[in-house]
Amino acid sequence: MIEQRKLPAYAAGAIDVPFVIGFFQERVDVDTCWPSHSHPTHELLWNQRGASTVSVGPRMWTITPVLGVWLPAGALHEGRACAGSVCNMSHFGIDSVEPIALEPVPVVITPLLRLLLERLADPGLNPTSRAITEAAAMDNLEPAPGHLSIHMPQADLLQPIVSGMVDEPQPALGLQQWSDRLGVSGRTISRAFQAETGSGYSRWVASLHAQQAMEMVARGDDLQDIAQLLGFSSQSSLGAAFRRNTGFTLSTFRDSK
């Protein structure tokens, strides 16, 4: 069972905040979903432990201790977190900082950036030290390179494919198998993926598997088990596919837990 937490939808700047960068943390004890909401501040989502996801429209990102997501103020988004995750939320006053992007973007949480953001959680930090730390955090905050999100198709034709693979990580069926199940040609399925996501079926599956592998590694699952679950012949083939799709190695996420 997933616990739902409803939050309000605020326009950018709708509420004045008494901080330049505020730090908030929550341990999630049960699988939790936050339906569509937005904040009056810019937000950086990043985890202390475990994995979560955030969706803006049809695009979804996986959040781990290594990879966060920047959300501009007022951006409607939905969130999910697995039980046992420790989720961090850094909020940025829109009148105090320049946004690093005007759309959602992934951010690499480097060890230095982590230390700076965590230091801002100290209520005893004196004003001078806080201002220096905030400036240093902004200097080290920038969008990550590479393709690190996945576009979830909305077409009715593709829902049996999308819902099955997203709800339960598994090896991908071939286009011919889906063609037989759905009663349409493989070319029709591929064109539907291309029209909605900008990539064909195989590329979409590769991106989905990369997101799922990232989430499973972040929560501590064994790499060989992940490879088998997703239909890869070996741990090394999973790692090679992951690097091709994200630019990262899986060990980056494994070593961060």
Rank of each mutant, 00 (worst) to 15 (best):
A75L: 04
F92Y: 11
H39L: 10
S202C: 06
L67I: 11
L117W: 08
A135G: 04
G200I: 10
A192S: 14
L7V: 05
M89C: 11
L44V: 08
E43I: 15
L115C: 12
L117M: 01
R191D: 01
T128P: 02
L182R: 09
E43L: 15
I21L: 12
R219I: 15
T62S: 12
K257Y: 11
P18E: 02
H151Q: 07
C33I: 14
A9W: 05
S251Y: 08
A144L: 00
L158S: 03
M152F: 13
A218W: 03
A192M: 01
P171L: 10
L71T: 13
S251G: 02
C82E: 02
V28T: 08
I226K: 04
R254K: 15
V86M: 03
A51C: 03
L117G: 06
K6C: 10
L182T: 02
E3M: 12
T41K: 07
S129V: 00
V107Y: 03
I15W: 02
Q4G: 00
F193S: 00
Q177K: 11
A101V: 07
S237I: 15
T128F: 09
D225I: 15
D31E: 07
T64H: 04
E168L: 07
P127G: 03
I21C: 05
P143S: 01
P106I: 02
V20T: 14
A195C: 04
L117D: 01
R219A: 00
S163Y: 01
A14N: 00
S38Y: 03
I226V: 15
E196Q: 11
R49T: 00
V97N: 02
Q176P: 04
R191Y: 04
R254M: 09
R244S: 15
P153C: 08
R187L: 14
E215C: 15
S234E: 03
L238T: 09
L44D: 03
Q4S: 08
S185G: 15
V30I: 11
R203I: 12
V184K: 07
S199Y: 09
Q224P: 06
V66Y: 00
E168M: 10
T133W: 07
R191S: 00
A192R: 10
A137F: 07
H209C: 12
P143F: 00
S90L: 01
T32Q: 08
F24L: 12
G164A: 10
G74Y: 03
D222A: 13
S199L: 13
P58I: 10
M165T: 11
V217L: 12
P8G: 06
P111I: 06
P58C: 02
D95T: 13
L230W: 04
V162W: 07
V20C: 05
P104W: 07
A81F: 01
A83D: 04
R49M: 01
T32A: 03
F19E: 02
F248G: 01
I21A: 01
G186N: 03
P106Y: 05
T53Q: 03
L173Y: 07
D29R: 13
V205Q: 05
S36F: 02
F248V: 08
L117N: 07
N126E: 06
Q211D: 04
V166F: 09
S96I: 09
Q159T: 11
A218M: 05
D31H: 14
F193R: 01
T246S: 13
S190H: 12
W70Q: 01
A192W: 08
L44Y: 04
S179A: 15
P72S: 05
